[in-house]
Write a protein that binds this DNA or RNA. Sequence first.
DNA 1: CCAGACTACGAAAACGGTTTCGTGTTGATA
DNA 2: TATCAACACGAAACCGTTTTCGTAGTCTGG
Lengths: 344, 344
Amino acid sequence: MKRKITLKQIARELEVSISTVSKALKDSDEISKDTKQKIQAFAKLYNYRPNNIALSLKNRRTKNIGVVIPDIVHHFFTTVFRGIEKYANERGYNVIVCVSDESYDKEVVNMELLANGSIDGFIMSVSAETQQKNDFHHLREVMDQGFPLVLFDRVIDEIECDKVVMNDEEIAYEATCKFLEEGKKKVALVTTESYFNVSEKRAEGYRRALVEQGADYDPKLTLVVPFRGGEESCIDAFFEEEEFDAVLCVNEVFAVQVMGIAQEKGYRVPEDISVIGFTNGLLSRYSSPTLTTIAQHGERMGEVAAEMLIEKLENEIGFEEEETYRTEIIEATLIERNSTGKKK
Amino acid sequence: MKRKITLKQIARELEVSISTVSKALKDSDEISKDTKQKIQAFAKLYNYRPNNIALSLKNRRTKNIGVVIPDIVHHFFTTVFRGIEKYANERGYNVIVCVSDESYDKEVVNMELLANGSIDGFIMSVSAETQQKNDFHHLREVMDQGFPLVLFDRVIDEIECDKVVMNDEEIAYEATCKFLEEGKKKVALVTTESYFNVSEKRAEGYRRALVEQGADYDPKLTLVVPFRGGEESCIDAFFEEEEFDAVLCVNEVFAVQVMGIAQEKGYRVPEDISVIGFTNGLLSRYSSPTLTTIAQHGERMGEVAAEMLIEKLENEIGFEEEETYRTEIIEATLIERNSTGKKK
DNA sequence: CCAGACTACGAAAACGGTTTCGTGTTGATA
DNA sequence: TATCAACACGAAACCGTTTTCGTAGTCTGG
């Protein structure tokens, strides 16, 4: 076992000072050609690499980014994460992930830990519980301490910071219109409880489309599936109680469940009932019929978030200069597959 | 913006030395009650937290774990990751993820970077390219430098280190037997190229079952799907060329594709063709019919891997004491759903 | 009254780098 | 030959902790 070699060891071995070694390895012209060559050769031989921790301490920057997400076994979040990781890596940053597991407390604890020097800035999507509680002091806290923060997807209007969101309202509008163009008359919505602000935006787009296009908006055609459990029976009951010929779902799991139950009940998809879901994951691609879906371009979101964060990190803002924040919108796209029909 | 407060600042403010502050905060009995109370109160007021980086430098341990995986948008890996993250967090460790993207070079570069002080040990699953090249010097390298290494799932026999694997051979054997018990005669296997050693193990279990149970093992009934692209047509051709009444697939994507194509061709699942896949993900749960599948218990694997690593980290091995390595086996379980029939 | 023992604290080294600021030596110039 | 710049290098501070060791001052006992 050979420990990593340090400047000090090189210095001792070559009988020069630590400063000389440091400068020589940076090819400083304060050092003579001879000495530099000798030192560089030696360093190469022993595969010298500066210690990241020492650098972090000295430079007061870790080149680490903290990513806090509600869940990791989740197509959308992993997709975003991939984008973050790719971009960050290209720029020489590493990524530390903490999973809040939709819990407010875990989110708070994790962020506090990371804020004690482990990272230079945060990229996060807030937990469900945090949205419910409406308590964002931990976000304010880290920002006060000078950490740049980029929120994505589940963002908080009250917090001023950089944000990356999808055009949820718009694309839900488009999806709903697509149903109407198909000739569908009664479009339903299957969504989650509304403290998820993205769900709320999607619902708005859905309603606006119906109203603007002169179709009926019937509140009874909106099914709010409770947070955990009983989705199956919930959707089943919805079929029994209401009548509809198209369903917009806020995620792909709901969408395939709707298709499954519809087919069990003898409806044909898309002839009798059209379905569109959010999230272009594996389910959408391999369900039968394949699912028309809204691609959220999570990877792009991640890239953009990382880019915004790193820009803030590297353009250290001047003393009392006015801080400005941006909100980037990633355009979702509708991917047509076989759970919807042709335009009439 | 208030930067985090340091010992030095507290010391100056309270007109004591840095050492006194440090000791007082550790409740050392070298310091008088009065002084301690004063310092502790002040520290609490300003929410003092020791700087992780400084601690890392001092203690020569970061309390960070490096996780290197081939892909993150992948059910199994995220599941394992969740297990790692959970356990690590409980033990006060953070997790830095690097995605090799199945590339040898990225794997090497990422590990070198992490090894320069960012982490205390590695948990990894090697990339496809690395398995192909059969070049593991980067693993040896980090071990030589004293980093504990835990491999999971895609492990390397030539490397001596802690490992966590699934009983791939065994469970493939069981799955194959299940087909035979159902009364199936010609069991096919759909797999990936064999440099994935897990695929190889699964294939072995499959073959052993056929031979031991007195069924035919016909090499023509094994379909090797190329690494990227053309799965669809590949499977389609397989149906045209061969005849079989059961298919074991090494992942759930292959499994649902097989079911889809089978159904298109007019076969009934499971009456005409039974299907079992590996990976108990969303697809298995929501395909139609729902897929009988092999649950890999990734979360458990992650937990065990993290536990093994942290144990190594915390029981710093004595000088020249003999190092011992373990291989933990996680038992997979067969989850019966509707793509297989009843025992005859 | 003084040696010895506590008590309560501070100085300094160490972790591994970077960087500023000297400073001794050399060579050129007046 | 005296002066000065340029060259090549080293000392030391600093980043924020922990920890060892030293030491004033007070107290106790003989």
